[in-house]
Write a protein that binds this DNA or RNA. Structure first.
Length: 617
RNA sequence: GCCGGUGUAGCUCAGGGGUUAGAGCAACUGUUUUGUAAACAGUGGGUCGCGGGUUCGAAUCCCAUCACCGGCUCCA
């Protein structure tokens, strides 16, 4: 089936949902009901009806009734004035607002709404006519397209209900958004629901608990993760990896404090923009100090400590910086969104001519890192060119020429590298546009994982200048970038990406040695010896000496997702050979080779240091 | 912050205005000394998120609050 046919089915399902809800609760007012990935939603002001999950069965039943009636979707048009009258008469105040906007200002003022929802005859119509669809008694403002009749909408399920502000603005009333999924056949629907169940098993919050990676404590506070030994081990490996990689690429790694005087943020200009998402000031000796929400100003202070020559540029100041942001309570989510996190941050201070090359270099580093994790552009992540909104001075620094210049620079870098990307309005930082690496989590939800940002504001604010080859002073530009993003967030992605089965270099326990017997002294001693030898090679080796069956101990090791499990019994003690059991995802050959202890340990150590994703045994 | 939902043992979950709140796994103890995904038996473990109210009686009903989940808003 073609995409546009599926789209028409889902769009029609949204209308069936609205029609069903209107039959059940005639007094409700409708917002909009667009198609989304795998389904649709409809925003409804249910007034007294207070729709909740308990009503889903009732709604689905009514929708099925409408589908069985096989009502045709009939297209017709009205003049804009007739449409306004219709909205008034039927009490559809939200539709009325849209129509009034259309009538007054044309299409631009309603650009926050999907054009399909507006019933505009065409993109540049004179607005004399507005399109409608009728489906039985139910009439809705809509440009279509729809399927021929309600019998042709395919298989669906109502999934959830949530609040959503009218037209996405916090000051507007909140409507109830009813989400559904829709597919051509019941089998596809079933498959989709099963996929969601599978995805839940990889959820980083579930695996984090199962594998003792991290925890939260109500007493410590919301959004403040506590890293347990296993999780801390993984994160330490990640941090070593990224710091070493950056230093090799000419970054200057520094360490600066987690607090700073409030005057630093007043100087940077961050304070008015971000004070709502900063922790409240700490009063010390009459001065106010802030927990830092970003690293930029600290790094700029380092740059400006003395005059700089063009010979020193680009200066790539980098840090694993612990940051604190007072995110709204409802925005917190596992490790994806926390209030205390560590950003692999850097501020590249360079000449305007060097900026494009530095952006390209940062992207190259990002690509390299993604490659080490086995992440693919297209499947796992994509590039987003995030642009500013020139009309919104409260969120974006006013300097149209600088915005134009910066945006075209970033666009050029992406084009020259041949990278696919998409553009998004009003997603920039207040100081300039950025290239965001948008990573998909296990349920397909996207978050920014890494970012490269062009900054034309801070250099002025902080006086980031350099002496050029003609002995003249010039203003530098800044590229903010994060190579691996926030460690917490990238951990969340990696836990889900690997489904908890970390490659050898990251695995908290790389080898588990278990004994056949718990009493045989020689056997126990041999197992301990293997562990010590492994540790000398920098390996993380666990021991299971419990008085349990071999089968049970193997099972425990498999469930703990340990890459290599070796059994030690009389045979091994006598022969000096091991037959390591390789975790299923790592094994290339499917065989279980027999190796000398030292050879086995050395191979695993080599795998760890080369950060490979597969076993070489 | 807003809308909707959830909160019972370390974990997964059952129960539910009326004696002492259950199961499996985990933990612990004992027996077994085990050869590649679960030996057997027993023991301990819960202020039913926290606080208040209604009631003869609350884990169960009501209110408030905290945390988490799904969205919205936000995301330097």
């Amino acid at each position: 089936m073609k995409d546009n046919e599926i789209h028409a089915m889902r769009h029609s399902l949204a209308h069936v949902l609205a029609a069903a809800a209107t039959r059940l609760w005639p007094e409700i007012k409708l917002g909009i009901g667009p198609v989304i990935e795998n389904g649709f939603y409809y925003d409804i002001d249910s007034g007294e009806a207070h729709i909740s999950e308990d009503h889903f069965k009732k709604i689905e039943k009514e929708m099925r009734k409408i589908i069985n009636e096989d009502l045709p979707f009939e297209h017709f048009t009205m003049t804009i004035d007739e449409a306004v009258k219709w909205a008034k008469d039927s009490g559809q105040t939200y539709k009325l607002e849209l129509l009034n906007d259309l009538k007054r200002d044309g299409t631009t003022s309603v650009s926050d709404i999907d054009p399909e929802q507006l019933g505009i005859a065409s993109e540049d119509a004179a607005l004399s006519e507005v399109e409608f669809y009728r489906c039985g008694d139910f009439v809705d403002l809509c440009r279509g397209p729809h399927v021929a009749s309600t019998g042709k909408v395919g298989a669906f399920k109502i999934m959830r209900i949530a609040g959503a502000y009218w037209r996405g603005k916090e000051d507007n009333p909140q409507l109830q958004r009813i989400y559904g999924v829709g597919f051509e056949t019941k089998d596809e629907l079933k498959e989709h629901l099963e996929m969601l169940e599978e995805a839940k098993k990889r959820d980083h919050r579930k695996l984090g608990k199962e594998q003792d990676l991290f925890m939260f404590s109500e007493t410590v506070g919301s959004g403040l993760p506590l890293w347990l030994e296993a999780g801390a081990t993984i994160r330490r490996e990640l941090e070593r990896f990224i710091v070493d990689e950056e230093i090799a690429r000419g970054y200057t790694h520094v360490i600066t404090p987690d607090v700073a005087s409030i005057s630093l943020y007043e100087k940077s200009g961050h304070y008015p923009y971000y004070k709502d998402s900063m922790y409240a000031p700490i009063d010390i000796d009459g001065d106010q100090y802030m927990l830092r929400p970003m690293t930029c100003p600290h790094h700029f202070e380092i740059y400006t400590q003395k005059p700089r020559s063009y010979r020193e540029l680009p200066m790539r100041i980098a840090e694993l910086a612990k940051l604190y942001r007072y995110e709204q309570s409802g925005e917190l989510s596992g490790l994806m969104r926390v209030r205390s996190f560590t950003l692999a941050d850097s501020h590249i201070i360079c000449t305007p001519d060097q900026a494009a090359g530095e952006v390209a270099g940062a992207l190259e580093l990002i690509e390299h890192i993604a490659g080490v994790f086995g992440l693919n552009r297209g499947d796992d992540y994509r590039y987003r060119l995030s642009l500013g909104d020139r009309s919104d001075d409260s969120k974006y620094f006013k300097d149209d020429a600088a915005w134009n210049d910066a945006e075209s620079k970033l666009r050029t870098v992406l084009s020259e590298r041949g990278d696919d990307f998409f553009e998004a309005e009003a997603e920039a930082a207040f100081y300039g546009p950025k290239i965001d690496v948008q990573m998909k989590n296990v349920l397909g939800k996207e978050e920014t994982a890494f970012t490269v940002q062009y900054d034309f504001v801070m250099p002025k604010r902080f006086g980031l200048r350099y002496i050029d080859e003609h002995n003249e002073e010039n203003e530098a530009v800044v590229v903010h970038r994060s190579s691996i993003g926030a460690i917490e967030r990238v951990m969340a992605f990696l836990i889900e990406h690997f489904a908890g089965k970390f490659p050898v270099w990251l695995a908290p326990e790389q080898i588990r040695v278990l004994t056949v017997s718990a009493d045989d002294k020689q056997m126990l001693e041999y197992a301990r010896e293997i562990k010590e030898k492994g540790q000398k090679l920098g390996l993380r080796v666990g021991l299971d000496l419990e008085a349990e069956s071999v089968g049970k101990k193997i099972r425990a090791s498999v469930l703990d997702k340990v890459p290599y499990t070796v059994v030690v019994g009389e045979q091994e003690v006598d022969s000096g050979l091991l037959k390591p059991r390789i975790r299923d995802d790592l094994s290339v050959s499917g065989r279980e080779p027999e190796l000398k202890v030292d050879n086995f340990l050395q191979s695993v150590a080599n795998e760890a240091s080369s950060r490979t994703l597969r076993s070489s045994l």
